[in-house]
Design a protein around this nucleic acid. Structure first.
Lengths: 205, 205
DNA sequence: TAAACGTTGACGCGGCGTTACTGTAA
DNA sequence: TTTACAGTAACGCCGCGTCAACGTTT
């Protein structure tokens, strides 16, 4: 069986390509009664005409405005006066959504700031822990020897100085990695943490 | 069988009420592995403890930020450094959504303006049609008689004047409804549409 | 015993994408 | 015959709401 399709008749795919949507979308619109074919071919194919093309254009217009397919149904079925009211209603919805979104964004930004502070604090804690550990290790390894050499007062002053080191100073120090760690150890040995670091790197301690 | 539940143990509803969500939500979070109960009671009830309460609080925090439950899974499972990255990523998503929304709103407003113009034009067309019809009816009803009395020229001038009436003038007239329609008819009979309307209402014609 | 809890299982929403299987046209 | 279409039917997505049908605790 052969069927001649006139100049302005479209099957699903042709219509879909014409309008830039998927064939599934076209069939779905038929399914929900949003866009019915003008007729069916003898083998059951959906055939769309000019009127349907126009209607689809309208549908897509409102869809791009973020209307639901149900809203579109009503808008298209109504005189333009009601369509206007529907659009104004829809505009209010969008404005509300934007308000909600603005609030979300503000909160996310607050949370980001908060998380950053927490990370900073966590880092600081780690740093404090690190310093504490460093001192303890030094005490264990060199404690008795160094204290015997320089006296408790000097060693305690050295430890205090290390504990007072700020995060920023630490970070600067951290960039120098092993070199600096070695320097710290050396400084500890000499009982003068400020000295070598200062001379070697123009340090801030 | 009796089971003693300690001070900080919650069943589904208790936890739900504590956190202000539905029991279904709690069970769903279990289902997808987002929030597992600490244990099951002997009769299969879900039992949640303090740690689960805390976790739920976190989940709800991120949920309020508009994160998907999957994102929340990852955020919570990660060290806070990765959580920060996830949040920043999420913030970008939100900003994009807002941009899209702004574009939607702008387009909706354009479409509203366009629809308003179309309605205005449609009204104008209706109005033109209405005037045309009015004249034709008058011609049929009184045409011969009036033309005989006042001559073609006077009648044609009257009709022209009516056709030149603006929409604004019409709307003013329309507010006076039947009264004005009677006046128009009367004016037509006297062959002087401007006169009576002007005297009665300070009309603009 | 009744009420208020608990459980699992299933469908529904919106707008299609994506198979899977089968029939038709060029 | 191949290939590119056409059709229908079905599940899947997300975050639950909302039954239904049944067991447990109070």
């Amino acid at each position: 069986v052969q069927e001649v399709i006139g100049a302005m008749e479209y099957t699903v795919q042709k219509l879909a390509r014409l309008a830039g949507v998927s064939a599934r979308t076209i069939r779905y619109y038929d399914e929900i009664g949003l866009l019915k074919p003008v007729r069916l071919s003898s083998s059951g194919y959906r055939i769309y005409g000019r009127a349907e093309v126009d209607r689809l254009q309208q549908i897509l217009l409102y869809r791009e405005l973020g209307c639901s397919l149900e809203q579109i149904q009503q808008i298209i079925a109504s005189p333009s006066f009601d369509a206007l009211k529907a659009l104004q209603q829809h505009r209010l919805q969008l404005l509300n959504e934007r308000k909600r979104l603005d609030a979300l964004i503000a909160n996310v930004e607050k949370t980001i700031a908060y998380t950053e502070r927490r990370i900073e604090m966590a880092d600081t804690e780690k740093f404090e822990g690190f310093k504490q550990e460093l001192i303890e290790r030094n005490e264990q390894e060199y404690g008795a020897e160094v204290r015997a050499k320089y006296g408790d007062e000097t060693v305690d002053r050295s430890n205090e100085k290390l504990m007072r080191m700020s995060q920023a100073e630490y970070e600067e120090a951290a960039r120098l990695a092993d070199d600096v760690l070695a320097t710290l150890a050396e400084a500890f040995e000499t009982g003068d943490p400020g000295g070598p670091l200062g001379q070697k790197n123009g340090g801030t301690a």
